[in-house]
Design a protein around this nucleic acid. Structure first.
Length: 276
DNA sequence: GTCCAGGCATGCA
DNA sequence: TGCATGCATGGA
């Protein structure tokens, strides 16, 4: 990977098969939007950016090198060698097919708090509706960063929301989960930064103790919000995939289970006739 | 109108 | 410990 400062931002290049579309549309994040120019727009850590796909990488419009290394390098997991990981994972034929279907996926390192709330919302829900609920949550409790684009609400804003307001924006029975979990984070009973520092197993135990967080949501928070790439969230789609593997991912996935999961999840959802 | 979705808590065996 | 059921809501 290399970078170059251009007139309109920083260009990140020399990354093989990197796809913004595949990365943003594979179900791991809910807030990036495609604009009429074909660029991806979103807010990360209260910074609004527009990203342009390039042949061999992407451009972060308006960003400089400091911002790139402060935020985006980690966000896109650019320290990880995906070519090598994909080579190893391709030792299994189903994984190989899944990777060829969307080779440009990268598992994002998202904000811990945002992932915590987002994946509580995600349970027994479909991705279109999850996006809608999170949009409304950001509109109501976040700050407008750029016309029409909002920050993810901070801890206090969500923790102070009324339970009926959470119902009103469509959270449904998850409203109570959000209500109590966010208060736990605000009052320090749950410290997400400290949990993130723990081992995957220890962190998982604590998350499982929170009302509204079960094995699947915990694994999503660990994988997407805490960088625990050894977790394999098993939703309905991954359960169907795992059935093809007799319940366990193949040996070549060891060490890269979270990334393998992302390729497989996306593959299964796009080839429902094979997996359903 | 029916089925389903990046599930979980609860009760009951 | 394991399984059945209810849960809010709107997309498909």
């Amino acid at each position: 990977m290399r970078t170059l400062i251009n007139d309109d931002g920083i260009r990140v290049f020399d990354i093989s098969s990197f796809s913004l579309r595949q990365t943003f549309e594979c179900g791991q994040c809910f807030r990036w939007k495609l604009n009429s120019s074909g660029n991806w727009c979103g807010v990360v850590k209260n910074i609004y950016r527009e990203l342009r796909q390039e042949i061999d990488g992407f451009t972060i419009i308006g960003a400089d090198e400091k911002e790139f290394y402060d935020i985006w390098y980690d966000y896109f997991d650019l320290n990880n060698d995906y070519d090598e990981i994909k080579r190893i994972l391709s030792g299994n034929s189903i994984l190989k097919d899944a990777i060829s279907f969307s080779p440009g996926i990268r598992v994002l390192h998202q904000d811990t708090w945002e992932a915590f709330i987002s994946f509580i919302i995600s349970q027994n829900n479909n991705i279109t509706r999850i996006k809608g609920i999170i949009d409304k949550l950001c509109y109501k409790y976040g700050k407008e960063i750029k016309n029409g684009f909002y920050s993810f609400p901070d801890i206090e804003s969500i923790a102070n929301a009324k339970i009926e307001d959470l119902y009103a924006i469509g959270c449904g029975y998850r409203s109570e989960y959000i209500y109590y979990a966010s208060k736990d984070v605000l009052n320090g009973n749950i410290n997400l930064d400290e949990i993130k520092k723990l081992s995957s197993e220890e962190a998982r135990k604590i998350l499982l103790g929170i009302y509204g967080i079960g094995p699947k949501v915990a694994d999503c928070i660990l994988l997407y919000g805490m960088g625990k790439l050894d977790r394999c969230p098993a939703d309905i789609w991954m359960k169907r995939v795992l059935a093809k593997f007799n319940g366990e991912l193949p040996e070549c996935a060891n060490g890269n289970i979270g990334i393998a999961q992302q390729f497989l999840f996306n593959y299964a959802r796009n080839f429902q006739n094979i997996f359903k």
